[in-house]
Design a protein around this nucleic acid. Structure first.
Length: 672
DNA sequence: ACTAATGTCCTTTTT
DNA sequence: GGACATTAGT
């Protein structure tokens, strides 16, 4: 026994307590950098080593990457067979929901071949119905598709009545309550008719499945242990799901940190973590507050930042890494100086031996790195960007996937509209006719060849029908299917969009990704549920640099750490974002975002902000506006920084001198 | 019926 | 500066 569990000595006492916890509910409050991933990984290893079958463990994480990482560590730690840990059910709530619904979905009247919409599809559907119901043509402006999805999602994820949601978050939409009700009802109907699920539905259907006691016991009974990471960022439905999954068996371990809750816009509620002991009586609570990541000078800053939170349950963090460079706060004259400062400093650290991928630049919104990206390209510093605009949201990728989605699910109205209108001369009217023709002929896309539309487009539509016939013959070869579509679609590209060569390259990369899959279904599902996270995930090996700098939104940086971290655009309006400055709750969340960003740093932390920056919709002629230092950088916080001014006077000015030394007096009296 | 051109509004974070 | 809607023109 002793020999087999020698690796437990690598843990600190609290971590070990969590890892070797017996049965029953366990809540681990894990501060930033306190070894949370390690604790979860070791827990999995411990469970398997004590005889729990891997397939009876459910590990819910925030991204698939996180799950894979933990399982890899678990395997390494306990020297488990790769195969064994591979059977652990790991992944996001959404991907696990998908897997379970493929098995049990029939109980809910759900076919085995339901398809999943990404956020863009969901918005498009909302938009379609908005027009269908004539709400787009009203005299007063009706909410746009994005807003509509946001309202809908709030209701679903927060389990709140439409009226309440409108009053609280969207008061300007209150006059439309009646229309919204009608619209949302139709949205749900249409999804059901087409056997299409949006992201919210995955959780909702899982929750519905568990309403029945017998079903809850059967589904929950598949698992001896459930482990949940990032619990502070789960929503009400997810909380309900867990409670129902643990109706009888109470083996559940959740790990989280309320100071790092940053997803309330998605319905996440910190109540889940606070109420956990109430929902699971007899909960053991363990707090991890020793930080293994950062130096004390950095922790002094982050502790000062989070101490401004009005509500806080976790303690200050401490570390045995007492010394290190004090964090630097750089006030830059404008964005260009900020870019220069960041790039210079990155290269300096690189020269000193820190590889680029151990350094990261973090920001609140995807576009905050626009000008920096240009500077990095100019200096030939390779980088990967995480978060922000995604590939799946680009028009050409959506187009190509549209063809494939039709093959998957010919009832998919949106994909039909999108694909048909790519053809020159085909607009909404012809598209609708053609689609109905297919629907009337057994939902067989290939019958398009027999469709008698307007003479000008007849040949093109016939050709499209031919494509679908060929696609059908290539089941189980997604890469070949992508290639076929690409051959059909690529010639249309130059007419449709600017920048055709770059888009063409994306499509080729998509084909490479497809070649990793054995079926079109799994390819499409993975793409919607676990979309490529970085701009170069799609790049082929030939395009890859072996070392690269990380650019990331703060949200996407969750759970990560780097030796050197830059937080740029730390100004009011950017952080906190002026989009989220309405209520105290929102401001609190922005503060936590700042905290999450700064706690990613191991050895070096640089926070910078430009006095003047480009703002696309600024009313000033040159579209630049003046910024103020982020309100989160209070005087107490600033004290913990070395301050730097970066501007035109010299390249880099020395820090402001605060201490006053009366040298004159000392020199006069020293020798006399 | 479809396309091209002009005008207006909004601009975050993600499964 | 981009998405989206409306309008005029083919």
């Amino acid at each position: 026994m002793e020999d087999n569990f020698g690796w437990l000595k690598e843990l600190n006492p609290q971590q070990r307590l969590a890892v070797t916890h017996g049965s029953g509910p366990l809540l681990v409050i894990a501060g930033a950098g306190s070894g949370k991933t390690r604790t979860l990984a070791y827990r999995v290893a411990y469970l398997i080593a004590t005889g729990v079958p891997a397939s009876r463990i459910l590990l819910l994480t925030f991204t698939r990457r996180a799950a894979e990482e933990m399982l890899k560590r678990a395997t390494a730690v306990a020297r488990l067979e790769e195969v064994t840990s591979g059977h652990v059910w790991g992944g996001t709530f959404h991907s696990v929901a998908n897997r379970l619904l493929r098995i049990y979905g029939q109980a809910l009247g759900l076919g085995r071949d339901f398809t999943i919409m990404d956020e863009g599809d969901a918005e498009d559907l909302m938009n379609l119905l908005r027009h269908e119901l004539g709400f787009s043509a009203t005299r007063e402006r009706f909410p746009q598709k994005g807003t509509l999805r946001a309202i809908y999602s709030r209701c679903v994820n927060g389990n709140e009545k439409l009226k309440v949601v409108l009053e609280r978050y969207f008061p300007w939409c209150l006059p439309w309550e009646k229309q919204l009700k009608q619209l949302f009802r139709r949205y749900v109907e249409r999804k059901q008719k087409q056997q299409v699920l949006d992201y919210d539905d995955l959780l909702l259907y899982w929750e519905q499945l568990l309403v029945d006691d017998r079903m809850a016991d059967e589904v929950g009974g598949r698992f001896d242990h459930i482990l949940v990471d990032e619990y502070q960022d789960t929503n009400l439905i997810q909380g309900n799901i867990l409670r129902r999954m643990r109706r009888k068996n109470k083996n559940i371990m959740v790990v989280g940190d309320d100071a790092q809750s940053i997803y309330s816009f998605r319905g996440a509620t910190v109540r889940n973590i606070l109420d956990f002991p109430r929902h699971f009586p007899g909960t053991t609570i363990i707090t991890l507050d020793q930080n293994y990541r950062s130096t004390m000078p950095i922790l002094r800053v982050t502790n000062a930042v989070i101490s401004q939170a009005r509500e806080r349950y976790t303690k200050n963090l401490w570390s045995e890494r007492k010394t290190g460079q004090r964090p630097v706060l750089a006030t830059c004259a404008d964005e260009t100086y900020q870019d220069t400062f960041v790039a210079d400093t990155i290269l300096k650290h690189h020269e000193a031996g820190i590889p680029l991928h151990r350094q990261a630049v973090l920001f609140r919104a995807g576009h905050h790195s626009d000008s920096l990206e240009i500077e990095l390209a100019r200096r030939q510093i390779p980088f990967r960007k995480y978060g922000g605009l995604r590939f799946l949201e680009t028009a050409h990728v959506k187009d190509l996937l549209g063809f494939l989605k039709i093959v998957e699910n010919p009832r998919d109205e949106l994909s039909w509209f999108r694909v048909l209108q790519l053809l020159k001369g085909v607009g909404p009217a012809t598209a609708s006719e053609a689609m109905k023709f297919v629907w009337q002929h057994g939902y067989e896309p290939a019958v398009l060849s027999e469709f008698n539309g307007p003479a000008i487009v007849r040949e093109e539509i016939k050709r499209l029908g031919g494509l679908f016939r060929q696609l059908k013959e290539l089941t189980r070869q997604p890469a070949a299917q992508v290639e076929l579509v690409r051959r059909f679609y690529q010639p249309l590209l130059p007419q449709l969009y600017e920048n055709a060569p770059a888009r063409q390259k994306d499509l080729e990369n998509l084909e490479k990704i497809a070649s990793r899959y054995k079926s079109l279904t799994s390819f499409l599902i993975d793409l919607t549920l676990e979309p490529p996270t970085s701009t170069s995930d799609l790049a082929g090996p030939a395009d890859r640099e072996d070392d690269w700098l990380v650019l990331s939104t703060i949200h996407s940086a969750k759970g990560c750490e780097w030796d050197v971290v830059f937080l740029i655009h730390a100004s009011d309006g950017c952080l906190p974002s002026d989009m989220s400055a309405d209520s105290p709750e929102e401001i609190e969340e922005e503060l936590r975002l700042a905290y999450v960003a700064m706690t990613r740093a191991r050895d070096f932390l640089y926070v910078s902000w430009p006095l003047r920056y480009y703002h696309a919709w600024s009313r000033f002629v040159d579209r630049h506006i003046f910024a103020q230092r982020s309100r989160f950088l209070s005087p107490q916080v600033c004290q913990e920084f070395d301050q730097l001014v970066v501007g035109p006077a010299g390249e880099t000015e020395e820090p402001e001198v605060k201490t006053v030394i009366d040298a004159g007096r000392r020199l006069r009296t020293r020798w006399f």
